[in-house]
Structure formats: structure tokens, C-alpha cells
Design a protein around this nucleic acid. Structure first.
Length: 578
RNA sequence: UGGGGCAUCGUCUAAUGGCAGGACGGCGGACUCUGGAUCCGUUGGUCGUGGUUCGAAUCCACGUGCCCCAGCCA
């Protein structure tokens, strides 16, 4: 990419469908992007990682055109790339989304199942939720696929404190209370928010002889732990009375078509004595309830990574990702602001679809379900990590060397260079040459670790700014004990980065070292400031040594020998009695 | 194939070479007129192998895996 000859713009003597023949020059991305950033005074140009290659062209153009051709002279913009972020159970690339739209698998770009902004907005997700989600996901240079649970958490967390609770029944089953007078209705007061949200407000909910309850809330043969309606059992109707189910009326096919039972008149606001009430279910009164449509959205794909593996992502499309149900909602919503996001108790968060749902008959989109911690179906996520291949042994690596390289290796070993260093030197021509140059001024075994580990990268790239002679002079003084190893290393790194003579830099650092007394005082100070850590070190948590050394090093502003610090520390830590 | 980039709990993300921490999820418990919320606890990780270093997620080397580019697209 970098070597190619970039096309900056093309000249087309043709009629443009919108601008006619006004322009002949059409800039390419690589030309337009840096220049428009620069002209507009952009300081940081953020983009995703597929443009990393383009940065070379970007920088070159900005650097070479700044201040020329009538362009201003001001700070250059910097392109910074981040990794792409994807989401489980969906696709996010435009190329794939368009296929869903064009094939009619979704109802348009704003289909609430899509991860588009238009889709999320129509679904009812608020910008606050997306911002919170983005913050949680964060930015890094790695391409990542985010757990869908994180988005769901952000949406719920946003809606929980603001969504008034009301009741709706999406799959109605009639419940007749045989001891409630026919034709009568009463109104019960029900708060919009539970105590933990702590917001004021309430509405009146009609209650009568015939109610709708959720079909899924009744079981003929309840599983273990069932806390809902069951024949013979007592269950709370949310915000209302406790009822007992006496009979489940079935049709010829054996399906339950109606429940019959009684309500306990004394159970409003308190639990009846001597009766075990299991759970609470939502309901609406059959007469006054408003007919409504509920659109329940599920994951667009059946698998977490529809892109992965053989075949098309379309093979994993979830045909049940939209379920349209006809049911009832309590009448109070009729007069609410149509923008209201509700929590339909025990069902999830809903709002009226802005396209279809604001008319006579309300249509509700389910924004997100409530978190369900009961009876997990528990889909297993594949966690198996692929087995790693075994690394070849060092002898085999040496054996694989070319004859000349092997000779270099053997010679290095003979001179006392370590195995790993010898191998690296044998493999790289430049390292070998550098070390040979060093050997004119001192023993190669002394130089090898420094050449390989500290200077290695620079030498390989041909930019070693430190001469062999300078390196060897430094190491000779180090051997004599003129300063400690950490001083030498810092000095060498500094010389590498900013130039200068490493020996002089090392001497300057050595002269700046703290005296033993000053250091001892510092050590005592650090230990005194961290009594807990000191105690747990003495109790056996040896890993804390690094913590203490770090603290002392920081306090000394680098003017200490870590080895000396460590020995002082262990002396004080082993002998607590001063 | 060549060039470029990236690898940390199940997931996402932190950690001037100095206690691998947080969030989501999971699990357990408390509470509850929502199997919600809240609170408490817990689980679990530095891609592999060597090397340098008092000390490595971080530096060096070699591997492995994934992504991007190789349009007169963006």
C-alpha cells in the first residue's frame, strides 16, 4: 500500500448528473480527506482501523501542502485510528444491512430490530442509553464484538428510573371471579413507580368480575418453583386482591380457554392470614381495557456471530425475531403523552411505535425485556480455546540455522554469550556486525545482552544511534562499579532516544543518586504510609515487594538504585522491631 | 503471496517496567405485592515458548491466531 503510487484525483470530461459540466476534477478519498481536515482546522481525525494504511498518504500530503498553494499555515491534523466494534446477534456493516432491507427480511432501515440509529430510535431506545453503552464499551485499537448483554443492560439502566409502571396483557386468558358481583366495577389506586425508584404519581385502575391475565402465567402442571397461577393456589393480582383459582375450563383440544376462581375481599393492601400467597401477576379488567397491539422484537440472528463460519450470514436469520400479538392495556395510557416509555410490569419496557402506534388503536414496541433470572435456558457460549502447537526446542532451532549462521552461533557460545542471545545474533546480520565491532573494545559476552535486548530493535532497523565504542565504554564503567545497572540502562535508552554519550549520561545520573541515609528515610516513610500492606507482606504476601519498590522509586523520582531499595526494604520488613 | 494492524477474566476495558483493577455476564445470599430494581458476597484473565531485569501484561526474539489493504471506492 505504502509503495503504491496513490491516485489523488481524476479528471473526467463528462457531464455530472447533478452539477453538470461545472467540475472536471474529482478528488479521491486520499486527497480529499487530509486536505479537508486541514483546511477546516481539524486537529484530530478519528477513523476506524482499515484506514491505518492510508495514514502515510494523509501525513505526506498535509506535510507537503501546508502553507503552499494558497493553503494556510497552522497545526497539522493527526489521524488516529480505532478498532471496529461489532455486536453479538446482529450485523453492523452497511453491505450486510442493505441485504436485509432489500430482501424484505426487515421492514426498512428503521426496523426496530436493526442496530441502526434509526432502528434503535424507532424501537424506543433513548440516546442516553446509547451514550452509556458507548462509554462502557470504550475505545481501543482491537476489533471487537461486544456482548449483547451490555447493550441490554444500558437500555434497562436508562429506562428503569424513568419509565412509569403500568399493566398490559399480551396473550390474554380470561379469569372470571365468581364471587364478584356481575356488572360492577371499582377503581384501585396504583402508584406509577415502585418504592425503590421513589418517584411520585399514580393512576386509577379499574377492577371487576372479568379480567384478562397472561396466558403464560397459568400452568395446569406447574414446574418446581412456580410462583404464578395454578388451580387451587393463591396468587396476588398486582396492586389488587389475592385470588384463588378453582377451575381451568378447557376446550375439546384440551387447551385452557378460561379460568374461574374467587377473590379475597380482605386482601387489598395486606396479606390474608393463614394463606400462603405465591407471587404476583399482572392483569387488566376485561371491560375497560384498551385493545392494543404488541410488537415483540427478538434477536435478528439465531447465533452470536452470524458472520463467522461457512455460508451466508442470512442462513442464521431468526424468523421469529418479530412477534405481533393482540392484547389489552389498562385504560390510563390513553391520555398519556404518546412519547412515554412504560414498563409493562413483568413484561418489559414498551413505547408506542412512532409510525404505526400513535393512532386510535395503540401499537407498542417492546424496547427490551426485563431481566429474567428465573429458569435459565442457558445457552452455552463456546469457550474452548484452540490448543497451541508446541514450540520447537532450542537445539532444533539451532539445527535449523544455515551453516554460516550456525558457525556464528557456535562462536558466540564459545565466547560466553548466552544461548538465546547467540541464536538471535546468528539470525541477524546487523546484530552480528554490531557485536563484532563491539568486540574491539571489550568482551562480547558483556555486550551481547545489551546489543540484543536494548539496542536490538534499533540496530535491526539500521538506526542504532549509539556507537559500539560508546556502548563498551559505558559497560566497562558499569563493570568497575561506577554506577548500577539501572543507571546504565536508563542512560543507554536516553542516548538511543535523544542522542548523547551514554557514559556521560550515566555519570550524570549516578551523581544525582540519593545518599544511603536519604534513601533509608524514604523507605521508612513508605512503610509507615502503608501499614496494611506492610502487615500483609509480613503475613506472607511476598508479591507486595514490587509495590513497595515502586512506591520508593516514585518517591525518589528515579534517583535510587532499585536493588539497594529492595535490600533496604527487606531488611526493614524482616525486622519489624527497630 | 506482499504490506499494514491487533492479541488481558465468558464479554468489553484499565494498569509512567512496581499489588493484574473495574464494568457487564454467571453463581450464591438478603430484600421484595414486578422471578424487575436495589444491596452484599463470589467466580474468573495477561495467546504460546524462550530471553533481558531486583521486578515483565508492558522490553527483546521466535511462534500461533484474528483483522485490514493490494479500486481511477470510501
Amino acid at each position: 500500500m505504502k509503495l503504491r503510487d496513490p491516485i489523488l484525483y481524476r479528471i473526467l470530461k463528462a457531464e455530472h448528473y447533478r452539477t453538470g459540466d461545472r467540475w472536471k476534477v474529482y478528488p479521491m478519498y486520499d486527497f480529499a480527506h487530509p486536505l479537508s481536515d486541514y483546511i477546516e482546522g481539524v486537529t484530530h481525525s478519528l477513523c476506524s482501523s482499515e484506514f491505518i494504511d492510508n495514514r502515510a498518504v494523509y501525513d505526506w500530503l498535509v506535510e507537503n501542502l501546508a502553507g503552499k498553494c494558497g493553503l494556510p499555515e497552522w497545526p497539522r491534523p493527526k489521524q488516529i485510528e480505532f478498532g471496529r466494534r461489532s455486536l453479538e446477534y446482529t450485523v453492523v456493516s452497511k453491505r450486510k444491512l442493505i441485504q436485509l432491507v432489500e430482501r424484505g427480511l426487515v421492514e426498512g432501515w428503521d426496523d426496530p430490530r436493526l442496530p441502526t440509529l434509526a432502528g434503535l430510535r424507532r424501537r424506543g431506545v433513548r440516546p442516553q442509553a446509547l451514550i452509556a453503552f458507548a462509554r462502557k464499551v470504550g475505545i481501543s485499537r482491537t476489533d471487537r464484538t461486544v456482548d449483547i448483554a451490555l447493550l441490554e443492560w444500558a437500555i434497562r439502566d436508562d429506562l428503569n428510573p424513568i419509565a412509569p409502571r403500568v399493566m398490559a396483557v399480551t396473550e390474554p386468558l380470561k379469569l372470571v371471579l365468581t364471587n364478584y358481583p356481575e356488572g360492577e366495577l371499582e377503581e384501585l389506586e396504583a402508584p406509577y413507580f415502585p418504592p425503590d425508584v421513589g418517584k411520585p404519581g399514580s393512576r386509577r385502575v379499574p377492577f371487576g368480575r372479568e379480567l384478562w391475565v397472561e396466558r403464560a402465567d397459568f400452568a395446569l402442571k406447574p414446574p418446581k418453583g412456580w410462583k404464578r397461577l395454578v388451580v387451587g393456589g393463591h396468587t396476588r393480582l398486582r396492586h389488587a386482591y389475592v385470588v384463588r383459582i378453582d377451575e381451568a375450563v378447557t376446550n375439546d383440544a384440551g387447551e385452557v380457554v378460561e379460568l374461574r376462581g374467587v377473590y379475597l375481599p380482605e386482601s387489598l393492601g395486606k396479606n390474608p392470614e393463614g394463606i400462603k400467597v405465591k407471587g404476583a401477576v399482572h392483569w387488566v379488567a376485561a371491560g375497560p381495557a384498551l385493545a392494543a397491539e404488541f410488537r415483540l422484537y427478538d434477536r435478528l440472528f439465531k447465533v452470536p456471530f452470524p458472520d463467522a463460519g461457512e455460508g451466508s450470514f442470512l442462513d442464521h436469520y431468526n424468523p421469529d425475531s418479530l412477534k405481533v400479538l393482540q392484547g389489552y392495556v389498562e385504560p390510563s395510557v390513553a391520555t398519556d403523552d404518546p412519547e412515554t416509555r412504560y414498563q409493562f410490569e413483568r413484561l418489559g419496557y414498551f413505547w408506542r411505535d412512532p409510525e404505526l402506534g400513535r393512532g386510535e388503536k395503540p401499537v407498542f414496541n417492546r424496547i427490551i425485556t426485563l431481566k429474567d433470572t428465573w429458569k435459565k435456558p442457558k445457552e452455552q457460549k463456546p469457550a474452548a480455546k484452540p490448543a497451541k502447537k508446541a514450540e520447537p526446542r532450542r537445539e532444533d532451532k539451532v539445527a535449523a540455522l544455515a551453516p554460516e549462521a550456525r558457525e556464528v552461533y557456535e562462536r558466540c557460545r564459545h565466547l560466553g554469550v548466552g544461548e538465546a542471545e547467540a541464536l538471535q545474533i546468528a539470525r541477524d546480520e546487523r546484530l552480528r556486525t554490531y557485536l563484532e565491532d563491539c568486540s574491539a573494545y571489550g568482551p562480547p559476552s558483556l555486550a551481547a545482552p545489551w546489543v540484543v535486548h536494548v539496542l536490538g530493535k534499533a540496530i535491526r532497523s539500521g538506526e542504532a544511534g549509539v556507537e559500539p565504542q560508546a556502548l563498551m565504554a559505558l559497560l566497562a564503567e558499569l563493570e568497575k562499579g561506577a554506577f548500577d545497572r539501572s543507571v546504565a540502562k536508563r542512560a543507554l535508552e536516553e542516548a538511543l532516544a535523544r542522542g548523547g554519550d551514554p557514559l556521560e549520561l550515566a555519570r550524570a545520573r549516578a551523581a544525582d543518586r540519593l545518599s544511603a541515609e536519604a534513601l533509608d528515610a524514604l523507605v521508612r516513610e513508605v512503610l509507615a504510609a502503608h501499614p496494611e500492606e506492610t502487615a500483609s507482606y509480613r503475613a506472607g504476601k511476598r508479591g507486595l515487594m514490587g509495590f513497595f519498590v515502586g512506591k520508593v522509586m516514585r518517591a525518589s523520582a528515579g534517583r535510587a538504585d532499585p536493588k539497594q531499595v529492595q535490600s533496604m526494604l527487606s531488611r526493614h520488613l524482616e525486622n519489624p522491631i527497630e
